[in-house]
Simulated assay, not measured.
Amino acid sequence: MKQEKLNLEQIPRVERISKEDFLRNYVQPQKPVVIEKLIENWPAYDKWNLDYIKKLAGNKEVPLYDNRPISSKYKFNEPHTYMKMADYIDLIKSGPTNYRIFLYHLMKEVPALQKDFRIPKIGLKIIKQVPMLFFGGENSKVFMHYDIDYANILHFHFHGKKQCILFGPEQSKYLYKVPHALIAREDINFENPDFDKFPVLRKAKGYIAELNHGESLYMPEGYWHHMTYKTAGFSMSLRAAPRTLTNFSKAVYNLIFMRHFDNYMRKLRGQKWIDYKNEQAIKRTHKKNEISL
């Protein structure tokens, strides 16, 4: 019996692209694309690997996250533990692990890394800030979510392979979005979903790609993304502000109200708030799609 899968098409790939083609074919229609050699002139293209990071930043203490479900014990994006970078790199090189580094300002901690990249002249008005880095061990996953600031994202991968599953914001009604949050239900396995429990996922239409070392993924604003490190590796993102007033307003709401409201309710109601939101994710999704509970 053939196993049922999500409806995913391959993200288009180009080796190189002009500013004009990138804006016309991907940014304006808000479609993702993998650019294979966008950063081949960066020093990072040749230099960045886990051993290089260990050499430059091995003594830095870094925040770690694992795959445990969100609970009232932790605030929004609060780390689960800490470790020296050298020890963490030894850990992920030794075999599979769930521990990831998420949204870490390593380049502020180690300014020498800032010399290894350049802002691509590709038509996006990149926010001039030191970019964050993301690390993961083999098989570690980043749950399905979209970014709080609705940014247009250029995501660059280094050392190994990373699988990316994307859905446009118009697919939100099919993804069991958790209310007052930026995530889908965490118990959904987007690589092998349970369609009996989450039948509306059959309606979702998304994209998939596998990033190799030095490749760049453009994710338009508000896109859902689920990442799986197929091998140990790390990534970097550059961001451009949302292009529409609607998405800019959503970003302001998320940053000013939603995040703080959710933290307040976790403190007030504890695990009951988390459980309520997860229940509502199913009820609201099924109601919108006229599926009886």
Score class of each variant (00 low, 15 high):
K2Q: 12
P12V: 08
V14A: 04
V14C: 03
E15Y: 07
D21M: 08
L23N: 10
Q30G: 03
K37N: 13
I39D: 00
Y45V: 00
K47H: 04
K54Y: 00
K54A: 05
E61I: 15
E61F: 14
R68D: 04
K73I: 10
K73L: 11
K73C: 05
P79I: 04
M85L: 15
G95N: 05
Y99L: 11
R100E: 02
R100A: 02
Y104G: 07
L106T: 08
V110A: 01
A112M: 13
A112R: 15
L113K: 07
Q114K: 13
I119N: 08
P120R: 10
Q129D: 15
M132N: 11
M132F: 07
F134I: 03
F135L: 05
K141N: 04
M144T: 04
M144I: 08
H145C: 01
D147W: 05
I148A: 06
N152H: 13
G160Y: 01
K161G: 02
Q163L: 05
Q163A: 04
G168L: 05
G168E: 14
H180M: 15
A181W: 05
A184V: 06
I188S: 01
N192M: 09
D194Y: 05
R202M: 04
R202F: 00
K205P: 00
A209N: 04
M219G: 02
M219L: 12
G222I: 05
G222S: 07
Y223G: 01
W224V: 03
S237A: 11
S237T: 15
A241C: 09
R243D: 12
T244K: 04
T246P: 00
S249W: 10
A251I: 07
V252R: 13
M258T: 05
R259V: 13
L268P: 00
Q271S: 08
W273M: 07
K277A: 04
K277F: 00
K277W: 02
N278D: 10
E279W: 11
E279G: 09
A281M: 10
I291G: 01
I291V: 14
S292W: 08
